[in-house]
Every structure is written in C-alpha cells, then in structure tokens.
C-alpha cells in the first residue's frame, strides 16, 4: 500500500480545495492518520472505499474523543537592552492562550479485498457546544451506524446525514454526555471500606473530618433519616 503522504497528495490532487492534513503519531505504534475537513469528507470516504488501489471496504472502529478547552502557557524570552548601558537583560514573558476544545471522530479503515490497513481518518467538530457536528460516514460504510450513534450518545457528536441518530446506550431522557472529560456524575457516594484515588476524594467530600474511617470502626447501623453527618 502507498504511504500516507502519497495518499494525502493523491487525495489533494483528486479533490482540489479539500482539507487533508497528516496527523503524525509520536508513539511506538506509528499509526498516523489523516485529518479531513468536513466539507468533502464523505466524498473522500467514498473514494477511499472504491479506489481500486485502496479498496478500504471495511470500516472497523469508529469512536469519539473529547478534547476540552486547554490553557496553554507560552513563555517568550525577549532581550531588553539596558538603557544604562549594562549587559542586556533577558525578560521572560508568559502568555496564556486558550486553545478551544473540540470533539473528534476517528475511523479505522481496512481492506478486506486487499487485506491491508489500517488507514485512520479523523474528523473534528468546530467546538464542543453548538457546532458539534461532523458528516456521518454511515452512508459509505453501514458498519458505522451503531458506533456513530454511540459517539453521539456518549460524546455528543452530531453526525449529520446519519439515518437514525438517537441515544443508543443511555435512556432517551438522559441529558448529559457521560464520556466527556467534564461530565459530573450524580452525587450518590456510598461508604466504602477501602477508598482510593478518585473515590477517596469523593469520600473526603462526604465525610469532611475523617476521609477514611478508622480501621477498627465498623459501619454504624442505618441512621434515621436526616441524621447524616
């Protein structure tokens, strides 16, 4: 199979004006991916499926990723000449920049006919609130249907053009998107004998004096209502 750079160049030549960017993966797996712009994503996906050299007929894995707003602190060093004529001073200037968050849909494509892969596609939404939509690839690969519904359910990515976009795992009345990083779950902490990690934090919130019960204290019998510590 051609390399991803060649594929990107071929796509750019075939679809003038399309946004196709190579996203490199610094990890050991080195599974790089192609970031597609929303405008021609479905046409490109169709091309990848039908191109005789690629024949990526099998869309294996579809998932969402949440990238919340991130505050990036950039340090710039500027050399300020000393007006008194001494050695120049180096002044560090810190600027905070808010990188807006977005949601990402990732598709892992393989070819059953030619038995190669994976080619990884990424689609990004404009933001995480009112423009959280990407084009659905279900019309291209039917196998995306349930997995895109799942990404909609858990991440809130709206796939435009999906034939049946409803909640799939949670109930219909549910309002939150639980797989997002800023999801706050309902506060129903319950006593645990060995809290640790995030559970310890919850325990500390509920029992402000002693975050962990002393080892020799058994849990008390159920207290009457309204007498919680």
């Amino acid at each position: 199979m051609e390399t991803l750079e060649q594929l990107r160049d071929r796509l750019l030549a075939r679809f003038p004006g399309a946004e196709v960017t190579l996203v490199t993966n610094p990890g050991a797996a080195a599974q790089h991916s192609l970031l597609l712009g929303a405008s021609q994503a479905r046409e490109i996906a169709c091309f990848l499926r039908d191109d005789p050299a690629l024949q990526l007929d099998y869309c294996s894995n579809v998932t969402g990723i949440d990238w919340p707003d991130k505050e990036i602190v950039e340090t710039t060093k500027t050399t300020v000449p000393d007006p008194a004529g001494g050695p120049a001073k180096v002044v560090e200037q810190k600027t905070k920049r808010l990188q807006p968050g977005y949601l990402e849909a990732v598709y892992h494509l393989y070819s059953m006919a030619l038995k190669h892969g994976p080619v990884i596609l990424r689609l990004r939404t404009a933001n995480r609130t009112d423009q959280a939509n990407v084009p659905s690839l279900t019309p291209v690969w039917r196998g995306c249907e349930f997995q895109e519904r799942e990404a909609f359910d858990l991440f809130g990515i709206v796939f435009t053009g999906h034939p049946d976009l409803r909640r799939i795992l949670m109930w219909d009345e549910f309002k939150d998107f639980p797989m997002r990083k800023d999801y706050v779950e309902p506060d129903d902490y319950e006593w645990e004998p060995t809290p640790h990690g995030g559970v310890l934090e919850k325990a500390a919130k509920h029992y402000p004096v002693a975050a962990t019960p002393p080892a020799d204290t058994p849990p008390a019998p159920p207290a009457p209502e309204g007498k919680q510590p």
């Binding site: 993966n25 610094p26 990890g27 050991a28 797996a29 599974q31 294996s60 892992h108 994976p118 990884i120």
Partner: peptide
C-alpha cells in the same frame, strides 16, 4: 507510563 501516542490493536 507509555509515551504519548495512540495505537489500535486487534
């Protein structure tokens, strides 16, 4: 702690 990156294994 693996280095930053991503992988799909199947």
């Amino acid at each position: 702690r693996p280095k930053a990156g991503e992988a799909y294994g199947r």
